[in-house]
Design a protein around this nucleic acid. Structure first.
Lengths: 254, 254
DNA sequence: AAGTGGTCTAGACCACTCG
DNA sequence: GAGTGGTCTAGACCACTTG
């Protein structure tokens, strides 16, 4: 396995990345378990006949991914934390629901364009009288109503979205596919609240039942806001799972 | 500013880190704004008379911190996202409260050791009949009750904690100082619920008011669990602020 | 003393972007 | 074509950990 012949020097994939994938494979296969040492930088460099800096880059990339961690003088070890699970990323309802093994679906309540109020216009940094699409949907997992989501999307960024987007599919996929806009970051505020009468009816729950209230602003890498969401989820069917890391002292000493 | 003389080659701090700090300073001072280009790798290397790889490491570290991002062929730019704020890290109540400019305090409800139930013992991976400390506190910000926290800590890891720890100080600081144990990661489950009669009384709120219910397991880097917390927070005084990043394609192509 | 990761050098070739 | 970041080399010295 750890052999120079397994590397393809003509591949467009960099050498460090090919090695990263090999090491990732041995970890995922279970051959290397949590806490066990990975091959050292010197060992990798020798076996693959590459420079130590390249071997180091492969191990470093595993560290950046959270799959391994290094200790000076000791070695590099498999991290006990599987961040493939439970790490909270920007996920659409579709992705999130599939990730837990359920089947996502939607019931569209409304899909229209209009000039929004100051809260929405401010969050999306709209010009005066600029329009947005508003897409309101009940979200279901395995046909059980989970929550109500109300997305606001600037018409300027998504011309003819109402004709191009099939609401039975993932909104994020459509935005990426049709407009080349992919969300890089989302800021989310979560509040604890109670369902009002209308929400309770749509979610087939009791009025006054506990609920999560989400307000989300999403941005592309340049910082431009591209979506503003208000959502209410049933407190009895929805849990938040967060993984929080302590500040890493590597790059911010002191 | 960008001058070889500003680097200290005898410092124990690495050169790339000194450069990182200089660049961070120009960004924090506002001299370099979101979206503007940082000096290129070649430029930094020339001005500081260091190798390009070292200049690259400085820029890379800013990228890892989320302060900047690089585009092949174009340059490295200041990220529009200030992750110094709102990025959700492992923070104690003390740290979190101070971060928003309020004064944290606590009222200790109980502090005792006992053999816990299966839920707690399982989360902390205790041996049969192994004891834990349980520290129950009402948490206050500027003297307003915010929530009730109930920490469980294995006695094995923290001998004589009940004598060493001053409950008016930060628990995390004490664990680090007295036992060299520093939390690396926390998995958190958040549920939406309602205050029961006892909780409402302790929090000076109404029974049935909306609330957050937290269950947190904290680990050191090796994966060993070191704390298990159950907490209830007032829904009207507490908000969760999360920052979610979309999966980065850098180190996990495909 | 031997092995480990952390830093650093002085080059090199490449793919990409932009004018 | 000039400038940028991405990758890679073949060395080097250091601090740290362990037997």
């Amino acid at each position: 396995m750890l052999d120079a012949s397994t590397l393809d020097r003509n591949s467009p994939l960099p050498l460090y990345y090919q090695i990263q994938q090999l090491l990732l494979g041995t970890i995922r296969s279970g051959a290397l378990k949590a806490g066990q040492p990975l091959p050292s930088e010197q060992e990798i460099a020798a076996k693959f006949r590459i420079s130590r800096m390249t071997a180091r880059q492969a191990l470093k990339s595993l560290g950046d991914m959270g799959v391994a961690y290094s200790q000076r003088g000791k070695g590099t070890f498999v991290s006990p934390f599987k961040l493939e699970k439970a790490f909270r990323q920007v996920l659409s309802f579709t992705e999130e629901t599939r990730a837990v093994g359920s089947r996502p679906s939607s019931k569209v309540l409304s899909f229209e364009s209009f000039i929004p109020n100051a809260e929405i216009a401010g969050a999306l940094r709209l010009k005066p009288k600029e329009k947005v699409f508003r897409l309101s949907r009940v979200r279901l997992a395995d046909s059980l109503p989970m929550g109500i989501e109300c997305s606001h999307l600037p018409v300027r960024l998504y011309p003819e979205l109402d004709r191009k987007f099939d609401p039975s599919t993932s909104l994020y996929s459509a935005l990426d596919e049709f407009y080349g806009i992919s969300v890089h970051m989302t800021d989310e505020v979560v509040e604890a609240g109670l369902l009002d009468a209308k929400q309770a009816r749509l979610l087939q729950a009791s009025r006054g039942a506990p609920a999560f209230v989400f307000t989300r602003s999403s941005y592309v890498r340049s910082g431009e806001p591209v979506e503003y969401v208000k959502a209410v989820y049933r407190g009895d069917r929805y849990k938040l799972v967060n993984r929080l890391m302590r500040q890493d002292r590597n790059n911010s000493r002191g």
